[in-house]
Each structure stands twice: as C-alpha cells, then as structure tokens.
C-alpha cells in the first residue's frame, strides 16, 4: 500500500486525494472535502470528479499489474465519463476495476460515490496503453 501511495502524482495530492486502504481487492481512493474540487455552487466540478475517477483507474491498474508494474509505463488512451447525480462538496470515494489487462492494452472501469456506494455519482471507462520501460 505504501508503494501505491507513492505513485499518487502531484495533481492527485494537491487535489486532496489519498489511498484509503483496499476495497474488494482494489485501492480505495478518497478525496477530502476541499474547495479546490467545487464547481457550480454546492456541487463538485465535473472535471474534479473525472480526475478522481482517472486516478482510481490508474491506481487499480498499478495494483493489478503487481510485479510487472515496475517494468512498464501505462499511458491513458481515452476516458468516457457518465455523470449520474450531482456530487456534493463532501468527502468522495472512487474505486477502479480492471476489466482486462493484456500485454498492450488495459480496460478499466471506475465508479465514484459519497455516503452510499450503491448510489454512484459518476462512472467511467478508461483504456490504457501498456509499454515496456525503455
């Protein structure tokens, strides 16, 4: 877990994101309540939600790759975010699920929620390119 937390990029840290343990075998991302994530009055910014989903997806993939992770670079290819309900300006969680990690491509889904995991505020799919480190 310490290793994974070290992989959180400066953007994730400055947005108040942290790894809050594991949930059902994947890293649980938490984003503190912060004005830095607020969009329209009283709600989270769509971009901040997308950013949290991306970090959750990236961390899920790092965790899934295990030992292989040190030998490869992962590059996000694309993301599609669905906004399901307004996110309030409270602590927000997200978890990625690696659907498939092949030799070159990984397909990952992620969901974000607040007080109730069964009521996600947004979900996404992301595709990644996996390349050997040169």
């Amino acid at each position: 877990m310490t290793d994974l937390a070290e992989r959180l990029p400066p953007y994730a840290r400055s947005m108040g994101m942290r790894i809050d343990g594991m949930l059902d075998g994947a890293p649980l991302l938490a984003m503190s309540r912060t004005d830095r994530a607020t969009g329209r009055p009283g709600y989270l910014h769509g971009g901040a939600i997308a950013g949290l989903l991306e970090i959750a997806a990236i961390m899920a993939l790092h965790a899934e790759l295990g030992d292989e992770d040190a030998r490869v670079r992962i590059k996000p290819v694309n993301i599609s975010v669905e906004y399901l309900r307004g996110g309030l300006t409270v602590e927000t969680f997200a978890r990625g699920e690696v659907i498939r990690a092949g030799r070159r491509i990984a397909n990952v889904r992620a969901e974000a929620w607040q007080s109730d995991r069964t009521k996600p505020l947004a979900s996404c799919w992301m595709n990644f390119l996996i390349q050997p480190k040169s």
Binding site: P10, Y11, R13, G51, L52, E54, I55
Partner: peptide
C-alpha cells in the same frame, strides 16, 4: 504548473486538469 503534474518523471500535466478545462 508543477502541482498539476500527472507524471513526475516527465513533468507531463495530469489529464484531470485538461478534462476540467475541456468541461469548462
């Protein structure tokens, strides 16, 4: 900006801020 970086090894911006700007 340094605190918006997604890959500290290369200094490439995280995609999150780019999505935020495209959203706006």
């Amino acid at each position: 900006r340094e605190d918006l970086v997604g890959d500290p090894e290369t200094g490439v911006l995280a995609s999150g801020p780019i999505v935020s700007m495209l959203d706006n």
